[in-house]
């Protein structure tokens, strides 16, 4: 297909920064490897649930960071600061609402995604490890829910956390130690709220992000499964290998393969 000189010029101008970055970092190739990949022709809408869960997590992370700008994790002011966010801070009701309802959505989507994976048999070889990482994500996600539930510091929050911590305490041998660590003493006290806040916004999200990174790396590496009704064989190896360096990374960025460019690289 012929191109006008002007088109080629625009293309060149658009690609120049990408070339510059690629030559120095190789990141364009990796991004392409990560995003532009083959999936089975008969993928199903159900297979977007994982991406939906990720989106819900990103919503939680973003709104959470901004809520932290107004929230005060201190027993004497936590409740008032939440009321302040909800009723006085501009758009506070919206961002808090997104965080509160998004939390439920995140958990629901995790379960739906897990059900899809189970029913499609997508946990089988070679994806067993990704199932295990997914289970860890479910547990850390629930831990986020548990620690976040205390933060409004109202009656519901307080007593739900009392019961939750005491359920932990009934675990054999280690249970009472877990409970004692969680509340920072034998009863819920002034340190408990700050501890839950730290767990909720620093420690557990850090673990979640690391696990999400691993989870997605394995999804990209192992590919997407065909639905169980697919005539195609599952577990087919990926066509293209991971990028090794400066190569035909442009393929996919520009649909048309440009031979003259490939020759330049070879030279």
């Amino acid at each position: 297909m012929a191109k006008s000189a002007r088109q080629a010029q625009i293309e060149q101008a658009a690609l120049y920064p990408l070339d510059w970055v690629e030559e120095r970092t190789g990141l364009v190739g990796y991004t392409k490897w990560f995003l532009f990949r083959n999936v089975p022709g008969d993928v199903n809408w159900m297979q977007t649930l994982g991406a939906a869960t990720l989106t819900a997590f990103i919503v939680q992370a973003t709104t959470g960071v901004f809520l932290a700008m107004y929230y005060k994790p201190d027993p004497n002011s936590a409740y008032e600061s939440v009321q302040h966010i909800t009723h006085e801070v501009t758009l506070g009701w919206l961002v808090r609402g997104m965080h509160k309802w998004g939390a439920s959505l995140f958990i629901i989507l995790m379960f739906l995604h897990m059900a899809r994976t189970f029913l499609f048999g997508a946990y089988k070889y070679p994806r067993e490890l990704n199932w295990i990482i997914g289970v860890l994500l479910l547990v850390t996600g629930m831990a986020e829910g548990f620690t976040g539930y205390l933060l409004p510091w109202d009656q519901t929050a307080y007593w739900a956390t009392v019961v939750g911590i005491n359920i932990n305490a009934t675990a054999p041998i280690a249970g009472p130690f877990i409970a004692q660590f969680l509340q920072g003493g034998s009863q819920i006290g002034p340190d408990t709220l700050a501890k839950f806040y730290s767990l909720h916004m620093l420690i557990i999200p850090g673990g979640l992000m690391a696990l999400i990174g691993l989870h997605m790396y394995l999804v990209v590496r192992l590919g997407v499964t065909s639905p169980p009704w697919s005539p195609k064989a599952a577990g087919r190896p990926r066509d293209e290998p991971a990028p090794t360096g400066y190569g035909d990374y442009r393929q996919g960025l520009i649909r048309e393969h440009r031979e003259e460019h490939a020759q330049e690289d070879g030279a």
Binding site: Q180, F181, G185, G189
Partner: peptide, 11 residues
């Protein structure tokens, strides 16, 4: 992070 919960300082 862990020990103060068990030394009774907070309680």
């Amino acid at each position: 992070a862990v020990l103060p919960s068990f030394t009774g300082e907070a309680v």
